[in-house]
Amino acid sequence: MTTGKDDKALRRRLARRLIVVQEEQRLRWSRELHDDLGQILASIALELHIVRADSHEMDTRLARAAMLIDQLSARVHDAAWSLRPADLDRLGLRASVEDLASVLCGQLGIPCEMDLEALSSPLPAEIALTLYRIAQEALTNIGKHAAPSRVSVTAHVQDDRLRLAIEDDGSGFDGTAEPGPGHLGLAGMKERLALVGGKLSIETAGGKGTTLYADVPLTG
């Protein structure tokens, strides 16, 4: 006979297994997009860039086709990155989160303050991936909904716990209200952090900006 505690532990194991399977699929799709489709597009672009026709009109059309292929290649690269960034495994969590923040702030044309030295030390793969996904979701939400003039992304270690903090001075929202369409990802972030023994907390108010804290344990 199972107890409520046993049922909760089973649900947690199943949820963690589901995340592992999802990330394995994302990694496979990312590699296929980047290595296979990306290589084909690069080859086509190279051919288009070096071929020359006998007429100005045809040259113009070829140049336009090469430009479109280049744009498509960039989108394939971005899609592969969003599925599972190769740099997360190759360069580590710090560089990957710095890249996320730099890209967002570059797109918005705003300053980005970063202090992520605490992410330089090796972390268990599950925790590193969880923190990456939290940063990805939080920064995406900022880009879509906050309209900030600055963003801050920091990480610090205290009492055997690592805290990732993502702050913006944008529109904020009512943290006591039911999540709207722009904040449905918060529940997913909380659940994902809970699976690695972590906790999500948010400080926000309408017109006052938002600070998101993701705390994870550094010991078992």
Results as ranks from 00 to 15, higher is better:
residue 53 A to N: 00
residue 67 M to R: 12
residue 96 S to N: 10
residue 85 P to L: 09
residue 47 E to G: 07
residue 88 L to C: 07
residue 48 L to F: 08
residue 47 E to M: 02
residue 47 E to L: 10
residue 76 V to H: 08
residue 135 A to E: 04
residue 128 A to S: 15
residue 115 D to R: 14
residue 143 G to P: 09
residue 133 R to K: 10
residue 85 P to E: 05
residue 76 V to G: 09
residue 46 L to E: 15
residue 97 V to P: 04
residue 82 S to E: 15
residue 98 E to I: 00
residue 102 S to K: 15
residue 41 L to H: 06
residue 133 R to T: 07
residue 79 A to Y: 10
residue 100 L to T: 05
residue 136 Q to G: 00
residue 138 A to V: 15
residue 93 L to H: 14
residue 112 C to F: 07
residue 89 D to M: 11
residue 107 Q to C: 00
residue 138 A to Q: 13
residue 145 H to M: 13
residue 51 V to Q: 02
residue 104 L to W: 06
residue 107 Q to N: 09
residue 133 R to S: 04
residue 65 A to S: 13
residue 67 M to W: 06
residue 83 L to F: 06
residue 70 D to C: 12
residue 75 R to T: 10
residue 58 M to G: 02
residue 91 L to T: 14
residue 99 D to M: 07
residue 44 I to V: 15
residue 118 A to S: 03
residue 136 Q to A: 06
residue 145 H to Y: 15
residue 89 D to N: 11
residue 122 P to D: 09
residue 131 L to M: 04
residue 117 E to D: 05
residue 132 Y to N: 04
residue 98 E to N: 03
residue 45 A to H: 11
residue 139 L to Y: 01
residue 123 L to M: 11
residue 54 D to Y: 12
residue 91 L to F: 13
residue 61 R to H: 10
residue 83 L to Y: 02
residue 110 I to H: 08
residue 123 L to D: 09
residue 49 H to A: 13
residue 140 T to W: 08
residue 103 V to D: 09
residue 117 E to I: 08
residue 126 E to I: 03
residue 81 W to L: 01
residue 48 L to H: 05
residue 61 R to W: 04
residue 84 R to N: 12
residue 87 D to I: 14
residue 119 L to V: 06
residue 40 I to Y: 09
residue 109 G to S: 08
residue 75 R to Q: 14
residue 91 L to G: 14
residue 84 R to D: 12
residue 142 I to F: 01
residue 58 M to H: 12
residue 102 S to T: 15
residue 68 L to R: 14
residue 80 A to N: 04
residue 65 A to W: 07
residue 77 H to D: 12
residue 121 S to V: 00
residue 54 D to R: 15
residue 60 T to R: 12
residue 120 S to P: 00
residue 61 R to N: 06
residue 94 R to C: 05
residue 73 S to W: 00
residue 56 H to C: 02
residue 122 P to Y: 13
residue 141 N to I: 02
residue 78 D to R: 15
residue 139 L to R: 07
residue 56 H to F: 06
residue 121 S to H: 00
residue 45 A to I: 09
residue 113 E to R: 15
residue 116 L to D: 08
residue 144 K to C: 11
residue 102 S to H: 15
residue 103 V to S: 04
residue 103 V to M: 04
residue 129 L to D: 00
residue 66 A to M: 06
residue 58 M to I: 11
residue 76 V to N: 07
residue 76 V to F: 03
residue 101 A to R: 03
residue 49 H to W: 10
residue 60 T to P: 00
residue 58 M to T: 13
residue 96 S to F: 04
residue 122 P to T: 09
residue 86 A to G: 14
residue 118 A to M: 02
residue 55 S to Y: 08
residue 62 L to N: 07
residue 69 I to G: 00
residue 42 A to H: 14
residue 122 P to R: 13
residue 62 L to T: 08
residue 43 S to A: 14
residue 146 A to R: 04
residue 131 L to T: 07
residue 88 L to R: 11
residue 132 Y to Q: 07
residue 101 A to E: 03
residue 114 M to A: 13
residue 127 I to W: 02
residue 67 M to F: 06
residue 74 A to M: 00
residue 86 A to L: 12
residue 123 L to A: 06
residue 107 Q to G: 01
residue 117 E to L: 06
residue 79 A to R: 13
residue 76 V to I: 14
residue 111 P to E: 11
residue 125 A to V: 09
residue 138 A to W: 03
residue 89 D to Q: 14
residue 52 R to I: 03
residue 112 C to Q: 05
residue 87 D to L: 13
residue 112 C to Y: 08
residue 64 R to Y: 07
residue 134 I to L: 09
residue 119 L to Q: 06
residue 100 L to A: 04
